[in-house]
């Protein structure tokens, strides 16, 4: 489950429930056309309401980073719990993606 809001060039995607390969594919197919069509400059993944994430979530975030950074945009993550934070560190996510709160 997820919801999103686009405001002044920033797309905030709120992820809920379990972010695995199956959900990552659904999120991707919905937000990529939006990113391309509306000139999104900044993408924020709010992960604070996720109950589960595996490396498919890392693929989703890094994939969107590659997409946005090609045109000077940026990606951030908000609200990771200790477990997701560990996964982000393990996979080097913070080398390219800003952590908010």
């Amino acid at each position: 489950m997820f919801s999103y809001e686009l405001k002044r060039g920033t797309l905030t995607v709120c992820l809920m429930g379990e972010l695995d390969h199956s959900m990552a594919a659904r999120v991707r197919s919905e937000i990529d056309p939006l990113i391309d069509a509306s000139g999104v400059r900044r993408l924020v993944f709010d992960v604070g309401r996720l109950e589960f994430m595996d490396s498919s979530g890392i693929g989703l975030i890094i994939g969107r980073y590659k997409r946005l950074s090609r045109r000077g945009g940026s990606v951030a993550v908000a609200g990771p719990d200790a477990r997701i934070d560990k996964l982000f560190r393990m996979c080097g996510v913070y080398q390219v993606v800003e952590r908010l709160a």
């Binding site: 991707r28 595996d54 490396s55 890392i58 693929g59 994939g63 393990m90």
Partner: peptide, 15 residues
């Protein structure tokens, strides 16, 4: 070949 897999699956399992 795309940009969707992180390549971290086995590393995560091992951790």
């Amino acid at each position: 070949q795309g940009e969707e897999r992180s390549g971290m699956g086995f590393t995560v399992m091992e951790s």
